[in-house]
Write a protein that binds this DNA or RNA. Sequence first.
DNA 1: CAGCAGATTGACT
DNA 2: GTCAATCTGCTGC
Length: 208
Amino acid sequence: MPNPYFYLMVLPESFYTRADVVQIARELLGKKLVTVIDGELTSGIITETEAYAGPIDRASHAFGGRRTARTEIMYRNGGVAYVYLCYGIHHLFNVVTHVKDSPHAILIRGLEPVDGLAKMMARRRKEQLTPLLTSGPGALSEALGITTRHTGVSLQGPEIFIQQGIEIPGKDIIAATRIGVAYAMEDALLPYRFYILDTKFVSKGKGL
DNA sequence: CAGCAGATTGACT
DNA sequence: GTCAATCTGCTGC
């Protein structure tokens, strides 16, 4: 990475439109997720992701080609946000990948805070900087100010974008089963969850 | 249309 | 470890 602007580079749309959602989920580790919402810049390094492989994945909201008002965003061309409400309370942020009509998505589950610490703590009503600030999909969305109103926004900014970040060696990437998808039967066993070895910023839940 | 489960979190026993 | 919070969408009457 000789380019001095490497760390500022916003990932181009071509990063997201590729076909292999599992590979993209792996590559997102170490990248920097940035939001500029309410005039406040907040960001963090992505530490945990999960791939959802469209129509053939029983764990995906788009399994079997299901289309609803909520999932329609996943059928768009890659490089936009899919944010949905879970348990009626938590806003879960996903990155849409592949091309139009191929509903792949990657759930961002963990983040190591970098910029806008004070704002993130205020949004999360925390006095201390603890891993709980941005560990878990609902928690990081709240810290970054992401809500369902951002579903469909472009990841080229200006509100949400992802920059080139730090290089994660292959030996430091752990593959595991996804969390909370026991209902997906055999697909719950797929190693579609990735996180950085030894990071404190991973969700507490366990896979199978 | 009622009932229920869910890609979760945090408060409490 | 248990449980409530409360929106979306699926299932079944």
